[in-house]
Design a protein around this nucleic acid. Structure first.
Length: 217
DNA sequence: ACATTAATTGTGT
DNA sequence: ACACAATTAATGT
């Protein structure tokens, strides 16, 4: 048990250097629960009241949202050292989740109990800083997305999405169809196929059936 | 091994 | 966006 606790602290220090405060790390480690996901797993669904705030330590969480026609729209990935701003928000003001979080295979995260957050917020400058930075990251990301949509930079969005997926899967080879990519970007399959062709021409990707390989990035 | 079908990708309009 | 062709994978016989 004690060695588990030590281990948790080590993982925390490695992935969240911002928590540079022994008593905060102690408190987190003492209340945390470590989650490991062997395969793809649903962590939070729409409408859930999340009990745990995830601090990602390995792999990636895929955050998405339902759109008006029941489709699913990808929002962003969370990588080690990050947490879910949306879930934080839900927990603070006690409302159901508007997003869905799915863990990629092999993802690990430390779950923090919902009720501790308000306390820590008051008590630890480091924690306050961390949550505010999380919100800020998301906000910047949102602005960048709006920019890309407003200026019709679909090619950039496509490449960005592929790079995201590549990082999340820890491989330069992404197994996905053009159709699925088009759905995530809310575009049509033909447009995505043609853009991919262009990206292949300029040597950014290599195309196989059901698989896209990212080159030199 | 071969034929049949289904799914994915490519192209022209 | 739509229609259709071409290619490749999956399945049955």
């Amino acid at each position: 048990m004690t060695e588990n606790l030590q281990q948790t602290k080590e993982i925390l220090k490695q992935n969240f250097p911002i928590f540079n405060n022994e008593s905060l790390i102690d408190r987190i480690a003492n209340h945390a629960r470590v989650f490991k996901n062997e395969k793809e797993e649903l962590i939070v669904d729409l409408g859930d009241f999340p009990k745990w705030i995830p601090l990602v330590t390995k792999g990636a969480l895929k955050i998405s949202r339902a759109d008006s026609d029941g489709g699913e729209i990808f929002l962003y990935y969370l990588y080690p050292g990050q947490t879910c701003a949306m879930t934080l928000n839900c927990c603070m003001i006690d409302k159901p989740s508007e997003i869905r979080a799915v863990a990629e295979a092999g993802t690990e995260y430390i779950g923090l109990p919902r009720k501790s957050l308000a306390e820590w917020m008051m008590e630890f400058e480091e924690w306050r800083q961390f949550t505010l930075e999380s919100y800020n990251d998301r906000y910047e990301n949102l602005l960048a997305t709006i920019d890309a949509i407003a200026f019709h930079k679909l090619d950039e969005r496509l490449l960005g999405l592929l790079q995201d997926k590549s990082i999340a899967l820890g491989s330069t080879k992404v197994e996905i169809t053009h159709k699925k990519l088009a759905e995530e970007l809310h575009s049509s399959r033909e447009v995505v196929s043609r853009l991919l062709k262009q990206l292949e021409k300029v040597g950014k990707v290599s195309l196989q059936r059901n698989q896209i390989e990212l080159i030199d990035f």
